[in-house]
Design a protein around this nucleic acid. Structure first.
Lengths: 195, 195, 195, 195
DNA sequence: GATGAATGAGCATTCATTCAT
DNA sequence: GATGAATGAATGCTCATTCAT
């Protein structure tokens, strides 16, 4: 699965050859089919192991969390930022975005199990903060959307060779700035200032 | 070329079969090769006719423009937003982003002829505004990057079936909001307020 | 037809594109079909105009010839050698040899109208010389075959880039030597010497 | 590879369809690509296995040979004649001759690995014979060229359906005669006679 | 007479998937 | 459990030929 993630990250889903995945994993082509029904199944299992597992962890963190929301939210976002920066996981949303049209089952799986869950998770978290008065009275789903956008952008840029360079963009810094704006400007308790 | 754009938008570059392009255009496979050297050439010519032509127009508008910068900038951005919303042109950056790794020549062509030109164009325009005091003293390239991001997001979302729906996002509105923030918060003449 | 000969000489029959023939002739592809039924017909007409015409001439020369045979024979062979050296006509037997299997109709046409006629022509001529005692009592068909071989070799070598160079062979010289052997050794009036 | 040689012999290189090779070999199209990178590679490997292997053998025979040169030379030539007569190997030089212009890489490979090696081999052998006084003082490369020519002719004739028949030529006999002339007339120790 | 736009059968090559060993 | 040989559908591209203008 690690080999698959690497290759998917480099070439996308349909351009990755099962044979290359096998070779990189040091097994034979046939062996891949012992563990995965087909190419889509392999992709799904990569997503499950690498992303959905993490969402499970986040959900448990949130459930058991007590006290201020902001530190938890920041911690989760930092972890996500780190993953995108240090692993090839950011390639997965890029692949889904790219190939959604050609692999609707895959896209649908990802939407249900990743995008929607993350969206619900963030929405709920922000809602909690708004309830307790920790955050301003912004619409939680709107805030969640605004918050998620720069991460998607970072994931895309980090995994599209040449694109970021063309506009001299540093993905990690982009996220940092966006989150700074987000936290101080959007979520900060209403003090009457204009964001 | 219209048929090609449609198909590329639906399936991406490599998953689009030349034969389908031909069929949709109402001609035979061979006919396509009378007008385009190969698939990459077809794509390049679509980009040229549909995007680069517009950049030429924008550049001429800018050259001959006199007076305040903001209205011109807004007008250009509006046109871009309209194109993304009403045509399938937004699929092109999506395709480039998706398939850059597998078609480096195409990606490089796009970077040089579209991304960099747009970036220079916006940077120069903002710089003019900063010079005349119309805009705040923000770094023009930074401002250009921030300004372009939501359009890329809009282009991606509009052309990835199901993605926007998953987070209940309205791409056009997303851009509007982002630009509103941008113009009032980032470019507005410095009045001492925090953005 | 000149353009066709050139191209056939360069690339062989099936690898020559009708479009290139047309272009080299300065006309359009369609025009070719005004004058030739198809590609094979074009080839046949080239053969007819460039080779069969010459055979007709040779036959007439022979018919009207009086006196010693050797000078006439030498003159004909010299003309053939010159044609191979100075025009691209030598490519035609090469093409036939090469593509006989794939274009049996063409091969058969060439055999009947060129090879057999030349063979008969030479055989008859040598026979005349043997009859008059000018040549030794060699079997005329054998002599004709031996005489024709170096010309075929010359035609092949002259029209196969790199082949002659590989064995440092000079096609024209090869023919000259072979004919010298042929005339002094094989056709010379029997003087009791061993050839 | 046997199937490939057969088909190449029948149709030449470019007119042979990989699918037919596969079918004749009793495998599927894809299987061919498991063992050969592409069509050219297949051809090259046929040449290597069927011809270059034999040249290696000849070279070893020569190296270890002691005593008179003529018997060794005759033995090698006989083997070559036998191969041309009894297998389809003679088709290979024919193909190279025919398609050299369209597949320069193939032609160059053949020139370097077959033609030049055979030429050097024969030249060296004759040179040895001349040194020891076994052969007349003829120029070894000239002799090698003259010796090789009838084999090329035989290979061409044997593999061009209809050509030999058109001049009632028996390729094998042609070689025999030519070699007889060659050995008694050209290589025979100088006895003062004219060849 | 000449054009050139259009056609579509044809071929080399790729790769997900299967299965006997 | 693992292999790797085998498959064949799929696709980009070519080119002889046709035909309306």
């Amino acid at each position: 699965m690690a080999a698959a993630l690497e290759l998917f990250a480099e070439k996308g889903f349909s351009a990755s050859r099962l044979e290359d995945v096998a070779e990189r994993a040091g097994v034979s082509k046939g062996t891949v089919y012992l563990y995965f029904n087909d190419k889509e199944d392999l992709f799904r299992k990569v997503v499950k192991a690498d992303i959905i597992e993490n969402i499970d962890v986040f959900e448990k963190m949130i459930e058991s969390h007590q006290g201020d929301i902001a530190p938890l939210l920041k911690s989760i976002l930092e972890q996500i930022g780190k993953m995108i920066a240090e692993t090839r996981l950011g390639a997965i949303p890029k692949i889904i975005l790219s190939e959604a049209g050609n692999f609707p089952a895959l896209a649908s799986f990802y939407r249900e199990n990743v995008v929607k869950r993350m969206f619900r998770l963030f929405t709920a978290l922000i809602e909690r903060g708004v309830h307790t008065g920790e955050f301003r009275g912004i619409s939680p789903p709107d805030a969640a959307r605004i918050m998620m956008a720069p991460f998607l952008m970072m994931a895309l840029m980090t995994n599209s060779p040449g694109f970021a360079e063309a506009v001299e963009l540093q993905p990690a810094k982009h996220v940092e700035t966006a989150l700074d704006i987000f936290f101080t400007g959007i979520l900060a308790e209403n003090t009457g200032e204009r964001i």
